[in-house]
């Protein structure tokens, strides 16, 4: 309902202004009924410093390229030869994002600018005309790489694998000074005790190897396999 009343108001305004308007804009509104969309671009503060030549890299697209405009040195934009209708005005810059605006020009040459809402198309949130397009933010095209942090390194599974057993080996025996547990530990150790052959033995056995010490060689092979599994 609000929308309708607003619309009526607009019509009234348009009629009211008509006599003044037609005189004032007789030049724009030539016989062909072509209008001009005007506005200004307000870049972010770091914008001009980072991009010395931002005006040349910025383009205005009306309805996705049906009409186009360029940006002058002072940031003003102008799109010529637009007949009456409803248009989406987009500002394109490779580095910064701008919010598009819908500009409506009625057959009498009255302008209205509003926010683009594709879902609720009848919702009108007016924005000033001539357009004032502000850069929203710097466009983020890239994912941020994870930074190298010491905690990441420490909690890395491989580092944990190396450090934790070391801690266990070094610290556990010292923690267990209790004689009874020591005894138990010794028992367990004696149970699990098995001799790994010396590296030098292995090599000499292997080199000396052959048929004479086939049993030994087999054992060596087994050991090697065991090592591989490590």
């Amino acid at each position: 309902m609000e929308y309708f009343s607003l619309r009526h108001l607009f019509l009234l305004l348009a009629i009211h202004n008509n006599c003044v308007f037609s005189q004032a804009s007789s030049e724009d509104e030539s016989e062909t009924g072509r209008y001009v969309i005007e506005g200004r671009i307000f870049p972010l503060s770091d914008y001009q410093t980072s991009q010395a030549n931002w005006q040349a890299n910025t383009r205005i697209l009306v309805n996705g390229g049906e009409y186009i405009g360029f940006v002058k040195k002072d940031g003003s934009l102008i799109v010529h030869n637009v007949p009456s209708g409803s248009y989406i005005v987009e500002v394109l810059n490779p580095e910064y994002t701008f919010e598009p605006v819908r500009v409506e020009i009625n057959s009498k040459g009255k302008y209205r600018a509003r926010k683009v809402n594709h879902i609720q198309t009848s919702l009108v949130i007016q924005v000033p005309y001539p357009l004032r397009m502000k850069a929203l933010a710097k466009t983020r095209y890239f994912q941020v790489r994870e930074q190298w942090r010491i905690t990441d390194f420490i909690f890395n599974p491989m580092v944990l694998m190396m450090v934790l057993p070391l801690l266990l080996v070094m610290l556990l025996p010292k923690l267990m000074n209790d004689p009874e547990t020591k005894k138990e530990m010794e028992q367990i150790q004696s149970l699990t005790k098995f001799e790994l052959p010396e590296m030098s033995d292995m090599v000499s056995n292997f080199l000396a190897g052959g048929s004479s010490q086939s049993a030994n060689a087999q054992q060596n092979k087994k050991n090697q396999k065991a090592k591989k599994r490590q």
């Binding site: 072509r34 030549n53 040349a56 940006v71 040195k73 102008i78």
Partner: peptide, 24 residues
């Protein structure tokens, strides 16, 4: 019958002026 006259800054390529000529 529709002409755009544009002025460009020769070193940078930014627009200096733009106006249109429409003929019947």
């Amino acid at each position: 019958n529709n002409h755009y006259v544009r002025g460009w800054d020769s070193p940078t390529g930014s627009l200096l002026w733009e106006w249109v000529i429409a003929t019947e």
